[in-house]
Structures are given as C-alpha cells and as structure tokens.
Design a protein around this nucleic acid. Structure first.
Lengths: 362, 362
DNA sequence: TTGTAGGCGTTATCAA
DNA sequence: TTGATAACGCCTACAA
C-alpha cells in the first residue's frame, strides 16, 4: 500500500524497485526478495515469474537500501598515508581483490600522515557505516576521545604496518627489525665499516623496528654505532634528499635507506655531489619494485611482501567482522633480502678474487 | 510514532539515530535535521539544545540513510586498469583529493583490462547508486545491451585516457599523438634513423594516437616506416620484455616505448642480451616518475600530467552531476618531453662537439 | 519557526 | 510456501 501505487507511470527515469518487480510478477515483495537472495523455499513457478520480471524491468537491487536494512554495508574502509607512494598500490590492490572475492568493497583514504586528515576520514568511514577499517596509522597516538569514539562505534580495526599506542587491535606487519638486521649484517659481512642509516619517523613503529635492526646488526658485527651516521626522515623523497646531502658528506662506506622514496631522494643528492653507488658508497633500500633490477645501480633491497600484506589485512578484518570475540592477533610477514649491485657485493667479490689471485701468485 | 518509542533502553550498542537526538533535545526530528544540515531557520535556543544533544549522544548521521533519502550517494566510481600500474596512483590520488574537496568519495575498481571484470564492476557501481563514473575503458567496445544499461541508469560517465567506441561521453586525455610525435622527432633530430616502436593495444585510443604520432614524425623526418620495427604490446611488463627480445635483435638505433611498464620489461630484456642504453640503442619512454632521473640510464620521457588528469576527470563528472544537460566535452592535456640521457642526446652532443673540433683542427 | 507523517528501497518478522 | 507490514535512519512536503 505504500510503494506499489505511485510509479504506475511508465518509469520515467527512476530505477525500478522491488515493488515494481513484485507487481510485474504478480507476487509480493517478500517473494522477490527471497528469489534475489536465493533463500530457497520459493516455488518454481513464482521463482520463474520473478526472474522474468527482473530481466524485463532490468531490475538491479539498490545496495544502499539493502545495507540500511541489513545494517551491513559490505564495505571496508582503508586509510593509508598516500596511494601515490609506490609502497601502497600493491597493498591496496591486494586488499581490493581479497575484499571483492568476499563480496566487499574498499573505500580508500589518504591521510598524508596528518592526524587531522586521518581523523576526518575515520569520521567519514564511521558515518558511512563501513563494516571494518584497515588503518596505516599516522605517527602518534589517538586522543582519549578518539579512542572512545572508535570503541563506541564498535568497528573492527586492523592496523597495517604501524602499531598505534593505546589501541589494542589486530595487526599485520613485516618483520622489519629482521629485515634491517639482515641488510646491515650483509653490508658488514662484505666489508663495510661505516654504515649509515636513513630512518623513518621516530614515532612510527616500523621505523623503530628498522632502527633496532640496524643497531643490533652493528653490535653483532662488532661495529660501533655512530649517531652522526643516522638521519631521521619522514619516508618522503625530500627527506631522503636531505639525508643524502647530510650523510654522504660524512663519507660512509654504506647506507641503509629504510624506504624507497627516501632512496630516490638520496640518489639524486648523490648525483648532485658527484658520488656514485656502489663505487663511492654502498646502498641497501627497503621495498623492492619490478623496475629496480633493470636500472643502474641495480638496487639491493629488502622486499616486503606487499600483496600478502593487503590480503592478510582484509582477511583479518573479515574474520573480526564475522566474529568479533576472538582475541586480537598479530601477523608478522617475513621480508626478503635481495642482493644485487648497489650494496657493493660485486665489487667485494672482485676484490676477493683479486686477493685470491694475489696470494696464489705469491 | 514509528521510531521514537523503541530504543528507550539505554543504547546497548547501536548507534544513536536522529530520533534519539530529537528526544534528548526535546524537539522533533525535523529540527534536528535542519540543524545538522544548516538549513537556517531554527531558533537559537533549540539549535543550541540540539547541538548539545548531538555532542552528548555522540551522534553521527548515517550517511547510508541520508543517501537513500536524498537519492544521492556523494560517491563516484572509478574503474582503472590496475592501481598497481604506476601510471594510476597519482591519477587516483588526484581524483580522491578533488572529490573529497567537493564532498564526494571515490570507489576504486581494477578491471585488469578484462571486459567481464569491467562489466561486473560497472554493475556494482550502478547497484551502489554512485552519482558518477570515471572510466578507463578496457580495450574494445560495449555491447548494445551494456550501452542501454548505462544509458538507462542515467549515470554520468567520464572517459579517462581512452575513448569508447559508440559511447558519447565526456573525455579527459592527453595529446598522445603530439607526445609521440615530439619524441620521435627528437630522436630523428639527433641522428637516429631506425626508430622502433613498442605500441599499446591496437584497440585502445591512446595507443592508436601514440602510433599515429610515431608514424607522422617518421614521415616528417624523412624516415621510412618499417613494420618490422613495430611491436604491439599490452602496456604490461611482460609484453615489454617480449618487445625487447624481438625488436632489439633487429638493431634499431632507437626505440619509443609507449608506457613505463613496457620500458621496464624492455630494459630487462636488453640486460639479458647484453645491450646497453644509450650506447647500443636510444630510448624514450612514455610516463615520467620521480625516480627516473636518478638511476641509469636517466630516462628521456614524455611526461603525462597525471594529477591534472585525475583532477579534471572529477571536475567533469561533478559538472555533469550538477547539470547533465550541458554538451559533451573533451579535455586534452599537453604532454611534456623531458630530455635526459637514454635518448642518446648526450652522446650526440659529444659527437657533435668532436666533429666541430675536428673541423676546427682541419 | 516547528512538528507530523510519508517516502527512499530493502530486509525480516509474523501470520496465514 | 507466501503475503502483509514494520523496521532501517534520514529527508521533506505539508500543516500547524
């Protein structure tokens, strides 16, 4: 009696509703709904009539209305620093794929590592009633009121690559301490003594881990930690450039740069002051990309499994959406050292074989 | 009488609705709604009472319900080939920014250049009742039924970088014929004769344009078009690799690669067969990235204004959402040739100056 | 200026 | 198995 009457007019422009289908098929909306959602228990005859009506009217369920009624949007929000940072596209892509397979969509937000932007986006996601959130937290913690808001909303949150002080939530990350450790150990093994570090923001958990790995590997290799060989950047190109100008002037043997954008900055700084890699300094960079193996210097990198990160993040939110009572879990994926040329390994090998020849000749 | 009664219980978990606010503020939902939407004409007293109630209950409008009621989702769908293709992140980012400023969200979809995926995503976007769609069309046209579906839905569509046969819609693109033309003209100018082309899919408009630019520049430079020097790829790394294996064996002086991923593939192929750029062959690539200037060879590129692309695409959809009666428009942005080393310009200069010296000495 | 009530397009409960 | 009808939470004529 509510919807069935109006719109008797031959649909001027508006999309057909479930009522239109019901009328066309001479059944009730319930039946139509049951057919659409394959609830079974609908007679073959009616079922067929409904199918026909749907095709005839070109009916397409309004997902908005469905979400409102079901109290579930089949959408997960994802806020990352910046999709234009090449670290994220693969992760986002993986998240999209995984979500899609499970019938979910992904709403992407860029925080630019700014807390106010992040806050606004989270607000938006809550207002849109997303079923879950994947969060690459900006540096720093949430305020008490923010934490309360999030808790009250009761939306599952999965942290991505960065923990958040005071927020107990699922977490997907990579073992960055291990990654940095291996990188530095490798550099030390092939003879580098003065190993510099271009670190990420001090209040970002993965930056801390990378720093720890650096320090520990230094100790384990019997090298002394030199604070003047550490530059703290913000994971962006500019800071990498500044790091290069500062650090390279101190003539390190090698430098570990903890993300790709900073490596790009550092390399241009090196260009400007005429220093070459690996001849004048060795370099290992976090993050690997398909193009790093085919340009010079071929970068030695610590690859982070980006696709798995996105996949896992979505898997965790979905699990929590389905049953929120399970206990918080952390998934830590393994990085992988890919030795190429920038670390000076080839130079090292050549030196070694020359030494061998020399001693053989003696 | 419908919503106000239930939920007298002290909100167990559910989010407060506008009715809760109304009750708390002892006003009607209308008043609350008016305050929220700043419709003015609400007394100062009530207004204040409402504000207080909102804060107290931590009320947050349900955007789903609002969308359903207003018949407007403030969301635009964006379907691109693959966000993991480095060409897209900046565009998507720009779109996100621009949309956000206007109060819209962006729903991102990856078609992988597969028509069925594209179709499914378009279906999804329509079901979600997005207000507009930005489409980086897969190769090929829409079927008649698809065109009808899209037309019936009445959703504004803006084409991005690729036209769609049979679909009259707004379009943002770059002048790729010009870009390719300038690149090839430059190559010819510095002495390259046998210039190869790694083209994109034949049924993609921008690939056609790039091919046209190549051919015309060849003609204008008095060089003959050699079909064996043209390889048709699909804008992905693998096809670039195949292009490299095939084309480089024919010893071209130079090659124009029409996107970055194919350049990556071609460069690794070159590595494998021991050919170096620019010594053994010159190269110009479409798309520029911040990191192309600091690795060797420094790539000469045709930069496409990615940010403006995304920005313009959103601007166009928004315009059409607001008034759909304006006539279809095409925006063509200008590419920019960035001469670095891979095109052999430096080698050319050196040769030139040697010639000068030689003739001076004579 | 404010309130009432119906509509947005679904789902879901409860009878029949 | 079906049908009527009340949510879902918001907007918005139409009244008051």
């Amino acid at each position: 009696m509510r919807n069935n009457d109006r719109r008797a007019r031959s649909e001027g422009s508006k999309a057909p509703s479930i009522y239109d289908v019901a009328r066309e098929a001479r059944v009730s909306v319930f039946t139509v709904s049951a057919v659409i959602n394959k609830k079974g228990h609908v007679g073959a005859t009616l079922s067929r009539r409904v199918e026909t009506a749907i095709r005839k009217l070109n009916y397409r369920p309004n997902l908005l209305a469905r979400s409102l009624a079901r109290q579930k949007t089949q959408t997960i929000g994802m806020v990352v620093t910046d999709i234009a940072n090449p670290f994220f596209p693969a992760i986002v892509r993986a998240a999209e794929d995984t979500a899609q397979k499970a019938g979910y969509s992904v709403l992407l937000c860029n925080s630019d590592d700014q807390q106010d932007k992040e806050a606004r986006y989270l607000e938006l996601l809550l207002a849109k009633r997303v079923d879950g959130i994947i969060l690459n937290k900006t540096p720093g913690a949430f305020s008490a009121s923010q934490r309360k808001v999030l808790a009250d909303a009761g939306v599952p949150i999965v942290l991505l690559m960065r923990t958040c002080p005071g927020l107990k939530a699922d977490l997907v990350q990579t073992d960055d301490e291990l990654g940095a450790n291996e990188a530095v150990a490798h550099l030390a093994r092939i003879g580098h003594k003065r190993i510099a570090l271009v670190a990420g923001p001090e209040d970002v958990s993965n930056a801390q881990a990378r720093r720890r790995g650096y320090v520990k590997a230094l100790e384990a290799s019997g090298l002394t930690f030199d604070p003047t060989l550490v530059f703290t950047g913000d994971y962006r190109i500019d800071s990498g450039h500044r790091a290069g100008s500062t650090l390279l002037a101190r003539r390190p043997d090698a430098v570990l740069v903890t993300n790709y954008l900073m490596t790009v900055g550092l390399m241009s700084a090196a260009d400007e002051i005429g220093m070459r890699c690996p001849e004048d300094f060795a370099l290992v960079s976090f993050d690997d990309y398909p193009w790093l193996g085919c340009f010079r210097p071929r970068l030695t990198t610590i690859e982070l499994p980006k696709y798995e990160l996105g996949e896992t993040a979505v898997r965790l939110v979905l699990e929590r959406i389905e049953q929120s009572n399970t206990r918080v879990q952390t998934v830590t994926l393994l990085p992988q050292l890919r030795v190429r040329e920038s670390c000076g390994f080839m130079l090292h090998r050549r030196r070694m074989s020359m030494v061998e020849k020399a001693s053989a000749g003696a």
